[in-house]
Amino acid sequence: MSDTKPVAVEASNNTLGIISLVAGIIGVILFFCCSYISVVLGVVALICGILGYQQKQQYAMAGIILGAISIVLGIIFIIVGQVFLREIMPIIQREMRMMRF
């Protein structure tokens, strides 16, 4: 005798929420190497998150927060990236050469 019973599964649509969350995660992961892409993904995450939040979709608020973090980190890195590259990076590279990394 089979125990399987038909279960009514509610087909919830969280596409925009997940798009927002995924874009936010990728934006936060990439902010230190591709700041411009990070800002673009942050804006996409923010707008999709707002649209998804109005539809009461899951993950939308997480996407909005990650999108905002991604935009802020991206802009900070665009601004300070040049300074970091010129002033601090030679020191890091020298230390790494000494560590034979």
Partner: peptide, 17 residues
Amino acid sequence: PHHCLFYQATGLLCPAC
């Protein structure tokens, strides 16, 4: 755009390189 900080620091390529 500034050269990739990740590449400068580690010599590795990032996914967008």
